[in-house]
Design a protein around this nucleic acid. Structure first.
Lengths: 223, 223
DNA sequence: GTCTATATTCTGATAGAC
DNA sequence: GTCTATCAGAATATAGAC
């Protein structure tokens, strides 16, 4: 604990995503916003530059004027998306000033807020990672996120009484990310299974903000 | 409980997927196997009929001779994939002869076995559902899977002591499917996060067969 | 900077020989 | 049934006018 470094505040209501203004933006910004929307909704291959141009309200040629190619534009969007995503982990996991339990709450709340606003992002990221894993991990040093983080140290301390298996940490991460992210990845399936609409689904996500941290605690006590 | 109807047996080791023989199969079967592999790996749009033909070791024209079009071939593969997937739920959820706890164990074990063999299937299904929801739900009556199932009745009985909120069932399904399926959907991410290789990943999935049912019980006790 | 028109490449599908 | 060669359409990217 390094108290004098702990001036940053973390509130559950804090948004990690910025909803960019689509109106009154420069042409370049409007193209980027359109590209983000279309890429996230359809994925790289299915997204057509014509769709993006139309969504941005500009001509097809202008897209190449600003960004040279579909590929370059995609890489830019993907980099920003991955940065937002990993920032949600990074900031929380390495905070010296919060407890393990508080970190879990913050992670869950942050991601639930983020993906309630942009529900297509998780499936987009995971799909594109499948299509070009090496490419994306080069830009996202995901291993370092966890390794030697305050979060992991706190986890080891917390579970030190029993003999913690090395795999426990990874199971925890799968459960934490699974409980938080999976509902969005499987959103149409979940909505169909439960017969709920979008507002009801979002209500469920709000409930999960409180529930998941409790569940995680209960799970950790079973070991 | 209807004991005299309970002759079927369920073993954890039972496979719900059949690994089709690729060698010594008819041309039609070889094309289907190739199509399944390519579609599941790349998704509908990114998969090229030329890739499928090459994978099957036949000519491009032959693919259209047997299946008329890429679209028709895809619909066939998707139908089979969804049938396999929902069968894994259906058979277990409506069995009069197993307890709630046993159903959970069977669901988890079945899906973990299935997806350990075919890790691309979950992301494939969820991606394609996103691309054409109405199309796919027409073929997969997913709402009926849960509604009025033995599993749901048993769940209501089990949680009848406390006041069970209607949303609890859906949270349970999200947790159950999330804990089981999410690791496969996010496989590259999980492997990178933990610095583990494929065999180690599969080992973790084996561990989860025992762990997830215990966790689910612990979670239900928190309500 | 922005547009229209066009070049180029890729991909699904078919014609026709064997 | 299986192949080679080819067509038709679509999508990315660019040339060139304004």
């Amino acid at each position: 604990m390094i108290p004098y470094l702990c001036s940053r505040t973390h509130s559950n209501g804090k948004d990690m995503t910025q909803v960019k203004k689509v109106i009154d933006a420069s042409t370049e910004e409007r193209i980027k916003n359109a590209a983000r929307a279309v890429f996230q909704k359809k994925g790289y291959v299915a997204a057509r530059t014509r769709d993006i141009a139309e969504e941005a309200g500009i001509n097809l040629a202008l897209l190449n004027y600003y960004f040279r190619s579909k590929e370059k534009l995609f890489e830019l969007i993907m980099f920003e998306t991955l940065t937002d995503f990993s920032q949600g982990l990074k900031d929380v996991l390495n905070d010296e000033c919060t407890t393990f339990e508080h970190k879990v709450e913050l992670l869950v709340a942050n991601y639930l807020n983020m993906f309630t606003k942009e529900p297509d992002v998780p499936l987009f990221i995971l799909s594109e990672i499948r299509n070009r894993p090496e490419d994306l991990f080069a830009k996202l040093p995901v291993r370092q996120l966890l390794e030697n983080s305050v979060f992991v140290m706190q986890f080891r301390e917390k579970t030190a009484t029993g003999q913690t298996k090395e795999s426990s940490l990874l199971h925890l991460m799968m459960n934490l990310l699974g409980a938080t992210i999976f509902p969005f990845v499987g959103q149409p399936l979940i909505m169909a299974l439960g017969g709920v609409d979008k507002p009801q689904f979002n209500q469920l996500m709000q409930e999960r903000k409180k529930l998941i941290p409790v569940w995680i605690e209960a799970i950790l006590k079973t070991e």
